[in-house]
Every structure is written in C-alpha cells, then in structure tokens.
Design a protein around this nucleic acid. Structure first.
Ligand code: ZN
Ligand code: ZN
Ligand code: ZN
Ligand code: ZN
Lengths: 163, 163
DNA sequence: GGGAGAAACGTTATAACATAACAAAATTCA
DNA sequence: TGAATTTTGTTATGTTATAACGTTTCTCCC
C-alpha cells in the first residue's frame, strides 16, 4: 500500500479498481449498476478524498445530473461492499485499492497535497483491541485517520529549503 | 481513563473538568469567559458526544439563547486549548478529562449506550508513527475513533441473554 | 412470455452541521 | 481615558446528509 507517487499511471489505478469492484460484486452477488460504477470511477478520479457534492457536480459534467440521494445511495452501496472508505475528518470518500481483503480503515492524509493512502497494519488493529480490552471494551469498528506529510511533499520541502 | 460507569457521581466529573479548565486557562493566559465556561459545562452534561446544535438548545433552555457562531466560537476555543475533543465520526464533541497532558485523540465509543472514553495509549501513537514511517510518511495529528461495546453494556447483554 | 415481488432510481423537500461578514460590546494596557 | 485588541451578537448563507414517496427496472417463478 505505497503512497501514490506524484506521477504514476493513474488510469491503471482506475482500471484496476473498477475490475476489482466488478469481481468483488460478482463474488457477493451484488449489482454494480451504471450509477454505482460511475460514482466509483469518479471517486477514483484522484487519490484525494472526494465529497458527495463534488461527485454530484462531476456527474453533472458527464451529462448525468442527479439529486443528492442518488449519489448518497451509490456511496452507501460502495461503502457496504467495501469498495470505498469514508474519511470522516474530511467528509469525503476514497476508493479502496483492495476490496474484499478485510481491513479496518487506517488512512494517511497528506496535509500538503491532500493525497490519501491506506496503512492497513494488522498490528495496529491488535494493539487497539488489546488496549481497549484493558478497559473492558470490545471493539467492533475503528476509524484511524492520520494527518501528516507524504514522501513526495517532504522531498519537495527539502528542495524548497536550500539552506 | 476508565470507562465511565453507568452510575457514578457525575457532578464530580463536571466540577473536576471545570476546575481543570480554569487552571489550564490560567496557565496558558487564556480567557475562560462566561460563554466558554457554560459551553464546556454543557459538553460535560454527559459522557456522550454532543453536537453544536444540541449545545445551542441547551443554551436556550438556560435562557442564554444564541446563534450558531457563538457556540462554534466557544467550541473552537475549547478545542484550541485542549479542553474538549472533536468526535468526527459523530459530528460531536466530548470533554477532555485531563487537559494540558498532551495526547492525541484516541476515543472509544459504545455503540449501545453512546458513552465515550479516551484511550490515550502512547504505544499506539508510536506504532502508528512507525508504521507510517515505513511508507515514508511523517505524522502530525491522528484521529482514532473506536466503536464497540463498553463494560457496562456487555454485562447487560450477558444478563439479558440468560441461557 | 406474464406477473408478483424486490431492488434500484428519480424527485422534492428538509434536516443537520458549519462558516462568512460585519457591527457592537467588553477587555486590556499604556 | 482612550486606542488597540479580543470577544460577542446578528444576519445570512454555505455545506453535508437524509426523509418520504412515487416510478422504473430487474429477478424469478409460473
Ligand atoms: Zn493512481
Ligand atoms: Zn503530499
Ligand atoms: Zn461523569
Ligand atoms: Zn455502553
């Protein structure tokens, strides 16, 4: 789950995500309808969290203008089947690069460029479960959102500060 | 940081929080004005995350009706000085039981009763920082919100399921 | 193929959360 | 006191999310 590089073949990201979604939906007997596929594709337009209303506008630009419930329903479906993750601290959504592969939401967010990546560290899940258990608390779901600086932006900062 | 028991002397919680806030503000040269103190007190009315508009209504019931910006400004102040934490997954706020004592937001949320508690496990912070570092990512801030079941609600579930 | 039932979608309206902008009041401090 | 700063009041609006209900599309069995 490397952090997305500044320049990479992003169309490949999108294609891979759509293929994985197709497969995961087949496996689950879920229907990846037109709208759902299009919304997923739009979520994947970047590696940044996208808001529901930004998706609405994107849909409009594609000539498929819609009302909020349409987008929210598609997002609910994609969330329910693990094809996207919600980024609560940004009121946005990002595509999941490996649906099906069970994992809690561990998300890295670059404060500079806004890019997001998944961390997906099982040791972290265990540590949280253990730590919570010490207080007698049992864990269902966990949301981890880490803000910081991605490798690319750090490198840039070094270049911009000659010294 | 034990999970708050179902029955406990909650007025003591409130008083302790207000005292700690007073002290922390003095230490920082910050002004804990009337509204700010009242909002803090209202946040502490329960151990559950409270929304800004719920606080607005509470203010109204106290005869201090106000507009949204008043509450949001008070919340911003309390956040800035570490007297409360934001619970992004609930669009709410909870009081911090130990302001001043630096700590990232690690919050446990009971899906049953809605109660919240802080986890505050430094090992967790380290694990995240290390795990992120392996991807070349440096951490600024982290939001950890864990949903599950508190000790009280687990005990209740056992009682309600005789078998 | 036809029809009952379920799932998905369209549409309108509204709820819930948050901030911009500017005026008035209170506080600080020289 | 009086200027500078901070805090609060007020109006308006922006942003995010859902309720409710009717229509269409799909599924599956006969
Ligand atoms: Zn990409
Ligand atoms: Zn970056
Ligand atoms: Zn208490
Ligand atoms: Zn509980």
């Amino acid at each position: 789950m490397a952090f997305p590089a500044a320049r990479h073949d992003h169309s490949a990201c999108i294609q891979a995500a759509l293929d994985a979604a197709e497969q995961e939906c087949r496996r689950r007997g879920a229907r990846l309808t037109d709208i759902r596929r299009i919304v997923l594709e739009l979520v994947w337009e970047s590696h940044r969290p996208v808001g529901a209303y930004a998706l609405l506008e994107s849909l409009g630009r594609q000539g498929r203008s819609a009302a909020p419930p349409t987008v929210y329903r598609a997002l609910d479906f994609l969330l329910a089947h693990g094809l996207i993750h919600r980024v609560t601290s940004r009121n946005g959504f990002i595509g999941c690069p490996h649906p099906g592969h069970a994992h809690g939401g561990q998300i890295l967010l670059c404060a500079q460029c806004g890019m997001a990546a998944e961390l997906d560290d099982p040791a972290l899940d265990r540590e949280i479960a253990q730590s919570a258990a010490r207080l007698g608390f049992t864990v269902n779901r966990q949301t981890i959102e880490v803000e910081g600086h991605c490798p690319t932006c750090q490198a840039q900062a070094r270049d911009d500060t000659p010294q």
